[in-house]
């Protein structure tokens, strides 16, 4: 199917929306409430385009492409309308980016930048306190643009059924159950809403102030907890040798979804209680020793006992927590070096 975008012909698949078709060809259309997972719902009206033959201007995220459709995505009047819509949003809250966790990764900031908006031109409402009542989430109502992505996520992707819109018109707000603080609500803090939030309304509490988005190195890995093996991206501060934040990988089989342990249980490696040195029990007390001493001591004791009583008195436990490579190393050591098959692991708990 062919369509015309700003005068140029493009090949697109039927069933795509104008937005998807434009983006697949690198044509920029600003969006705020659209997200690949939660779809185009036509709430923010920033993605309006002109389509020949259609009455008025339409939202690119909800209208599907049609054969030989002529679409204009940039025009002075479109820009004026988009600018007014974003200006209304900026004036409806307190989008001050100075120390916002989402700075540099905020879609409202990007769209305002692309439209050249510098400040809200309408009087702003009075500030409201942030909801800090939960362990891992922070909800700042004054940065919420009511795009509904968090609610759509909570009710259709992770289906924890905690979020919903409450009240009406200008008082519409995102509400946890019957407008409870997050901490006492039924929220299991899986963080899907934080990942879907385009602005700084919903952010990770533990990551606040520990690193700007662009300062942190992104490295993909697998979750250390249950057997689902969710794919995640670690936001790492190399200088501080610390994981600052975790997000789910949208392109992997878990589609960006995680649970509370996966998303927020990342800081145990940096705990001061870690075992850091080899130790040997000397007259009943475990003492720190060097690697040399520990390895020599262990090797000689193993050799002494195995030579005396044979290999079968040796047994080794691998683990469901360590990597495949380490498990393989343990079984190879037990079989090739010691010469027994007494190797097992805690598959039973």
């Amino acid at each position: 199917m062919n369509i015309e975008l700003n005068g140029k012909i493009y090949e697109v698949e039927p069933g795509q929306t104008i937005l998807e078709a434009a983006r697949s060809h690198g044509v920029y259309i600003p969006t705020l409430c659209y997200h690949a997972k939660t779809g185009g719902v036509g709430k923010c009206r920033v993605c309006v385009v002109e389509v020949e033959g259609m009455r008025g201007i339409v939202t690119a995220c909800t209208v599907q492409v049609g054969e030989d459709m002529k679409i204009v995505t940039e025009s002075p009047s479109l820009r004026k309308h988009r600018k007014m819509v974003v200006d209304l949003l900026l004036s409806a809250g307190h989008h001050d980016c100075l120390s916002c966790a989402q700075c540099g990764n905020c879609e409202l900031q990007d769209v305002a930048y692309s439209l050249g908006l510098t400040h809200p031109s309408f009087p702003q409402p009075e500030r409201k306190p942030e909801d800090l009542s939960s362990e891992f989430l922070v909800f700042d109502e004054t940065k919420c643009i009511q795009c509904g992505r968090c609610i759509q996520g909570d009710n259709c992707t992770v289906i924890n059924d905690t979020l919903g819109f409450a009240y009406r018109g200008a008082d519409t707000k995102v509400s946890f159950d019957h407008d409870l603080p997050i901490g006492s609500s039924s929220c299991v803090q899986c963080g899907e809403c934080v990942q879907l939030c385009p602005t700084g309304a919903l952010t990770d509490k533990k990551a606040r102030g520990l690193g700007r988005n662009w300062e942190l190195e992104k490295v993909n890995t697998t979750c250390p907890y249950c057997g689902v093996g969710c794919q995640m991206t670690l936001h790492v501060d190399r200088k501080q040798n610390r994981i600052v934040r975790v997000t789910g990988r949208e392109d992997a089989f878990n589609e960006g979804m995680l649970c509370v342990k996966g998303r927020y249980g990342y800081d145990f490696p940096s705990s001061p209680k870690r075992l850091t040195h080899p130790m040997i029990r000397k007259n009943g007390v475990l003492e720190q020793v060097s690697w040399e001493e520990a390895l020599d001591y262990t090797a000689t004791r193993i050799k002494e006992i195995v030579d005396r009583d044979g290999p079968d008195v040796f047994s080794a436990f691998g683990s469901g927590r360590i990597t495949n490579e380490n498990n393989y190393a343990i079984q190879k050591f037990t079989r090739a070096v010691i010469g027994t098959n007494n190797v097992d692991h805690c598959a039973r708990t």
């Binding site: 609610i151 009710n155 059924d161 905690t162 979020l163 919903g164 819109f165 409450a166 009240y167 009406r168 509400s175 946890f176 159950d177 019957h178 407008d179 039924s186």
Partner: peptide, 22 residues
């Protein structure tokens, strides 16, 4: 009453609250 309606119709409380305040 909201709780009763939420549990017996198996509709999340957030949805019930969203409708009753609308």
């Amino acid at each position: 009453a909201l709780e009763h309606i939420s549990t017996s119709l198996r509709i999340p409380m957030a949805t019930v609250y969203g409708v009753v305040t609308f």
